[in-house]
Design a protein around this nucleic acid. Sequence first.
DNA 1: CGGCACGTGCGACATTGTCGCACGCAGCCC
DNA 2: GGGCTGCGTGCGACAATGTCGCACGTGCCG
Lengths: 254, 254
Amino acid sequence: MSHVPGLIQSIERSSAVLRLLAAGRLRVKEIADALDLPKSTAHSILRTLEHVGFVEQDTRTARYRLGRGLLELGEDGLDLNELRGRALNWADALAARGGEEVRIGALRDGHVVVVHHVFRPDDSVQSLDTGHLLPPHATALGKVLLAYNAPAVEVAVRAGLEAYTRRTLTLPRDLARSLTETRERGWSLSVEEWEAGRAGIAAPVRSFGGLVVGAIGVSGPVERLCDTRRQARPALVEHVTATARAITRDLAGS
Amino acid sequence: MSHVPGLIQSIERSSAVLRLLAAGRLRVKEIADALDLPKSTAHSILRTLEHVGFVEQDTRTARYRLGRGLLELGEDGLDLNELRGRALNWADALAARGGEEVRIGALRDGHVVVVHHVFRPDDSVQSLDTGHLLPPHATALGKVLLAYNAPAVEVAVRAGLEAYTRRTLTLPRDLARSLTETRERGWSLSVEEWEAGRAGIAAPVRSFGGLVVGAIGVSGPVERLCDTRRQARPALVEHVTATARAITRDLAGS
DNA sequence: CGGCACGTGCGACATTGTCGCACGCAGCCC
DNA sequence: GGGCTGCGTGCGACAATGTCGCACGTGCCG
């Protein structure tokens, strides 16, 4: 079997599997025979492709076929209801443990769509925020989503970075620096960039292969989220990032 | 980064890359940032996806986009002219070294399409066979192609295995056994199954990930191709399989 | 009912994928 | 125009992961 050094053999093999399945439905054994691979190897490839949605198996016939995730490649494979369903209990726990209001969101058409919102446990008057759109460049949720989505940054910059407060980042260079910091630390911070007196901390939620499909964040008064130097409180950062990791693990197990 | 044990991480990552590119054209750095991967790792994935035709790069902008190999997944990514172009010199060399006529073929719509035909070096009267269709189940070329294509076997069996000689394999079980042997040894043999007094030996030509995209074979009188027990002569088998491997390496380098 | 073939999953270890580093090139700014 | 920065590409060491033999359970066939 002639494999070119420097190329990733397992990816080449997976491409061959997809090509075979594009021509018709096949069983593990047939794929293994076609590629002269041991059954176990073929099965590992198929299991992975199935997991990422590129392949599906008919349980009755055991035959594999191309999956919706590949046929509809433009969709990011995770709809907002599924994100909400997977993340909402973790969001409730974060609100309880962190003591601040929590939102889960995703980028859609250049905006942050809030798919779940948890009030701050002690507060009595809140406006439920689900379905609302937030500006990506000024909110912590939005900034962490932009950090991993270069085209969305370009769109936002081209549309102009609107100033919501005097602290909103309105220069492309400033936004880019903030997003680079976000990537380096793995979480974002917004201090009075969206609303005066309020801050937010958010972390990414990832899907297969590391794809960012959403974010979870807390928000509240600056003096509760930040220390005297307007830096995020480490304990709260840890709660947010740990929760994001838990949701990511939950999604990976699907 | 949450990766599930038992799944192939590099395949998951490649699926994430494809999803990112389905949403827009991106540079290496942007993909690396989106997935929190080192640039080199992202580059290795892209290079592989490019090699198998799933991704293409715009040399002017350095941006990557989805490639024709993925957008047109039903095509096996190798057209017959390209197979011919890559294989014809090797076929000529095989005819010179093996002393028998050589054909290169591929499966199309249940038939073997001969894409290149080399006369036996010593013969003066030959009919050029290019473009001709051969029955897959009775020829060595066809049997080696069927050995790696389970759906094509099903089609042939369903259509009925026509007897061309009294030695043609007409029972599905007999054909299946012959194809299993073919896979086990890596080459096929046909002794008077297509034409009385003539035999053929053939080996598969493979593309990326091990996909069989064609075959090369020799044919001639039984007494020249086989020993007294009607088994293939080892020296000729070696010539055929070595040539198939050389063409496969040639294709891999593309 | 027994034998066989298949799909699935586990785990050892050899192979391969990962990724830091270096380099060349292009673009930008002073 | 030169220096700096960032990017894309490729090399090679080695740690991590992919490979794959084996075992098991299930279903089918004679």
